[in-house]
Design a protein around this nucleic acid. Sequence first.
DNA 1: CATGAATGAGTGTTCATTCAT
DNA 2: AATGAATGAACACTCATTCAT
Lengths: 197, 197, 197, 197
Amino acid sequence: MRNSRKVSRKQQILLASSKVFSKKGYHATSITDICEKADVARGTIYLYFNNKRDIFETLISDFSSSMLENIRMFSLDEPLTEQFDRNIRKFAEIIVQNRDLTKIIVSEAVGLDNEFDHQLLLFYAKLVEYVEGALIMLQKCGEISNNINPRLLAYSIIGSIKEIAYQWALDGGSLLDVDPLLKHVREFSLKNYIEFK
Amino acid sequence: MRNSRKVSRKQQILLASSKVFSKKGYHATSITDICEKADVARGTIYLYFNNKRDIFETLISDFSSSMLENIRMFSLDEPLTEQFDRNIRKFAEIIVQNRDLTKIIVSEAVGLDNEFDHQLLLFYAKLVEYVEGALIMLQKCGEISNNINPRLLAYSIIGSIKEIAYQWALDGGSLLDVDPLLKHVREFSLKNYIEFK
Amino acid sequence: MRNSRKVSRKQQILLASSKVFSKKGYHATSITDICEKADVARGTIYLYFNNKRDIFETLISDFSSSMLENIRMFSLDEPLTEQFDRNIRKFAEIIVQNRDLTKIIVSEAVGLDNEFDHQLLLFYAKLVEYVEGALIMLQKCGEISNNINPRLLAYSIIGSIKEIAYQWALDGGSLLDVDPLLKHVREFSLKNYIEFK
Amino acid sequence: MRNSRKVSRKQQILLASSKVFSKKGYHATSITDICEKADVARGTIYLYFNNKRDIFETLISDFSSSMLENIRMFSLDEPLTEQFDRNIRKFAEIIVQNRDLTKIIVSEAVGLDNEFDHQLLLFYAKLVEYVEGALIMLQKCGEISNNINPRLLAYSIIGSIKEIAYQWALDGGSLLDVDPLLKHVREFSLKNYIEFK
DNA sequence: CATGAATGAGTGTTCATTCAT
DNA sequence: AATGAATGAACACTCATTCAT
C-alpha cells in the first residue's frame, strides 16, 4: 500500500506537471504552479524528484520511450503498407491521447538548453533511423526507387508528422482526425514511390 | 554619418545577440553575455532596444520577414519545377547563410511563451498558405492528383524542410549540401505527383 | 503558534524597517539594509510584503490609523479643556513613543510621490476636520470668538504640533517634555480665545 | 553678452527644474526630464551644475535666501503690528509668486537625506530665531504675557504658516487669498496675546 | 559653448531548493 | 511521508555622468 501510494503520488505530480508545462512552458512554470495543480506542498515535490528539471526530463523521457516502444520493426511476413499503417496509427493514437505531452515534446522542450536539445535529437535520430531502415529495406525489395536518398526521405516523413502534430498541439481545440492524416502520410511517404518504381 | 553609426551599432548588437542566443538559448543568455559579445556596455543595449525580449523579437521578425520577402508567387509563364526550384534554392540559401538565426527560429524561439508561439505559428501559416496555394494551382492545372489534400501536403513539405533545417542547425558543424536537398524536396514534393497524375 | 510566529515575523520586519527608513529615508534604504536590521534573508521580506513600497505604506497607514483611532470626539458632559488636554496628551504620547515612525510621517514620507502625498493629505485632512469640528462646536457654545476662521485655526493648530514634532524628531536626541508642550498648545489654541470671548 | 547668455541659460535650467521637481519630486525627476523642459541637451546641464543634486540645492538655497533676505527686523519706531503685517505679507507674496519652489521646500525637499534635512532645519531655525527674538522683544515691552514660551510660540507660528503653505501648494489649483490668511496669522499669533496681557 | 552616444554602478525582485518540524 | 517557512543566488534594467566631436 505504501508503495502504491508512492507511485500514485509521483504520477499525480507528473500528470499535474504535464498540464502546467504544456500550458505555460518550462520557464514560466513555477514549482508553486505544479504544487497547486497537484495539490501537494512544495517540499513534497522533492521527495519524488531531484529538481524541476528532473520532472520535465521524466515527462519527456517517459513519453519518448513509450513512443519508441510502440514501434514495431517491419517483417517480410506481412504486406508492407499494412505494417506501415499500423505503426503510423499507433503513433497517432499516442499523440492524440497525450496532447499535453505532445505539445511539450514538439514545443516546450525545444531549445531549452543543449542537454535537452541533445536528448531530443537522440529521440528523433532513433525515429529517423527506424524509418530510414524501413526505407532501405523497401529499396532492397525493389518497392521504391533506388534514386531516393533514404535518410532525407526519413527526415521528411518525420518532419511531416512533427509539423502536423505541432500545428495540432498548439492550435487551440480542434480534434485531430486520424484517418485522413494516416492516408495522407501513407500516400505521401510511400504510395507514390511504390507506384513510381 | 551619425545615422550610419547608429544603424551599425544596432546591427552589431543584433549580430552578437544572434550568436549568443543561438548558442545558449533565450533564457540562458544574459544581457551581460550579449554585451561582452558585442563589446558594448550594458546600458548601450537599452539605447537601441527596450529590453531583452525586444532584441529577440527583432531577430525573429527580421529573419522571418526576409524569408517571406524572398518567396515569389508562381506564374504560368514559366515551367513550374523551375519556379519551385528557385524558391527552394533561395530559401535554402537564406537558411545556410544564417545558421544562427535558423537555429533560433527552429529551436530557441519554439515554446518560449504563448506570444512567441503565436508569432511563429503566423509565420509558418504564411508559408503553408503559400505552398498550399501553389499546390491548388498545380491541381487545377492537372499537374498533380486531385486526391491530394493540399493543406496536409503543404504541412508535410514545410515540415520536411523544417526538420532538415533543424537537424542541420543543431548538428555541430556539418555543411548543408543544398543540391541533393533541393533535388529531394522537389521530387518528394512534386515530381512523383506530377508523374503520378 | 504558527500564526503567532507569522505575525511576529511581520512585526519584526516592520520594526526594523521603521528604524532604517527613519534613519536613511525611503530611497537611501535598500532591501538589504532592512534585512540586515531585521536579521532575515532577502527573500523572506517578500513572504510578508509585496515590495519595498508596501512595507513603507504599511508603516505609514498603521501609524496614522493608530493616531486617528486615539482621537476622542468632544462631548458636552465634561469640561472642554480637560477633553482637549486628554486628546493632545494621547497624541503626544504616541508621537513620543514612536519617534522613528514620527520622523517617517513628518519627514521621510513627505514628497515621496503623488500617491503618498495624497495619502498624507488625507490623513492631515482628517485631523484638520476633527479639530475644525471641535472649534465650531466651541464657537456655538460661545466659548471662542465667532471671528475666528475655524478652518484656518485648525490648520494652525495641526501645523504647530507638526512643526514641533518635526523639530523634535529630526533633532538628534533631546527628550520631548510633554507638559510644557501641552500647556503651550492648549493656551495657544484655546485659552486666549476662551478668555478673549 | 556671453556672460548674459550664460546667466540666462542657467536661469532657464533652474526654472525648468523647479517646474519638474515640483511636479514629480526629486527622485522621480530625471536629468532627461529637466533637459526636455529646458530644451537643452543632457551634457549642457553639466556645464552649469555639478550634478543633479547641485541643481536642487541651488533652487532651495536661492529660495530660502530670498525669503530670509526679505525679513526685516523689528524696530521700535513703528507700531509692532504694522511691522508684523509687512513681514507676513512679504512672506506670503513670495510664497504665492513661487508656488513650484514653495512646494519643493515644504514637500519635495523634506526627508530627502540627512544633508538636506540639516539644511532645511537651519533655514527654519533662522526663521524661528527671528520670530522668537521678536516675541521676546514683545514680552520685554510688556506687549504679550511673560507666561508664553517664546520658542514654542515661534514654532507654532512657523508651523502654522508652513502647514497652510503646504496645503495650498499640494492642493491642485486653489488661489491663496492672502488677506484673510494674514489677518488670521496676526490674530492667532499676536492679537490675543496682546489683548490678553 | 553645446551635444548626445556611451557608460556601468547599483538594486528590487523572483523562485528553485532546503530543512526543521 | 509531508509540510511550508526561510533562504540567497541570479539578473534585467535605470539613469546620472562623461567625453569625443
